[in-house]
Amino acid sequence: MAINPKTHPYVRALVDYGGLAAFLAAYFFKLRLVPGGALGWSLAIGGHVKPDLVAATWWLVGGSAISLLVGLVAERRIAPMPLIAGGFALVFGGLTLLFHDPRFIKIKPTATNLVFAAALFGGQMLGRNPLKWMLGEAIALPDEAWRTLTLRYALFFLSMAALNEIIWRTQPDAVWVVFRMPGLWVLAVLFSLTQTPLMMKHLHTHQPPPPPSES
């Protein structure tokens, strides 16, 4: 989800996807810091080393921390979903680095999506609407439409958690990384576009809801 709509779109993109972009680049371009240079370390790109999920996780953790800091400085707060996703990136990324085990970073999307789904289902059961709270400034809908949209997003998050488990357990690391980004983002955008008829039906907006962000 985007942060305050008045914030510059580049800042919103950095908060939502900065850590993932760094992770993707580090994995496929084999970015790493090596001894040498004026600062004692220099950036190395490519070479004969194999892509390494654990090494790329350093960039995910660093990129996520910087992205959250930029979002906080930009408007002195961070929207709930980027905050949760960024926090999960730091926790699961830290576990990956601590135990040198890439399985932690692979299950991070599963955990994040399950938390989002549980929050939406739980809110519905308690008679509240967390999705309206998060998106109410972006789109205007009657309560009935919000309830329908909340249920659909909760099911979407559950589906993404299940799909992530299938991909990382059955496919090579490179396939999972592409699924992670941009695959999950593309699926989120496509899902959001399928909700356009619901928006148009209630005539408050002709824009699809923003895609759910999962860093």
Rank of each mutant, 00 (worst) to 15 (best):
G183T: 05
P208W: 05
L203K: 12
L33K: 00
M1R: 11
A2M: 14
R169P: 10
P35E: 08
R77P: 02
R77D: 06
D143L: 10
I45F: 11
V15P: 04
A85H: 03
D16M: 14
F88A: 04
L95H: 00
G94V: 08
A38H: 08
F104L: 03
V61I: 13
L187F: 10
L98I: 07
D52M: 01
I107C: 05
F121N: 07
P197Q: 03
I105R: 01
W185S: 11
L126E: 08
L149I: 15
F92S: 01
P109L: 00
A26E: 02
I139Q: 02
F92Q: 00
G71H: 07
L193G: 00
K30P: 12
S64T: 15
S215K: 05
F116H: 05
F179L: 09
P142E: 13
T194G: 10
A162P: 01
Q171K: 07
G71N: 08
L155E: 08
R32S: 12
H206S: 10
W146V: 00
L193T: 07
A38I: 14
L68S: 12
L69Q: 10
K106G: 07
F191S: 03
L163D: 10
P82E: 13
A22G: 12
F28C: 09
P197C: 03
E75D: 14
L155N: 05
S67M: 11
A145G: 08
Q171C: 09
P102Y: 03
L149W: 09
N4T: 15
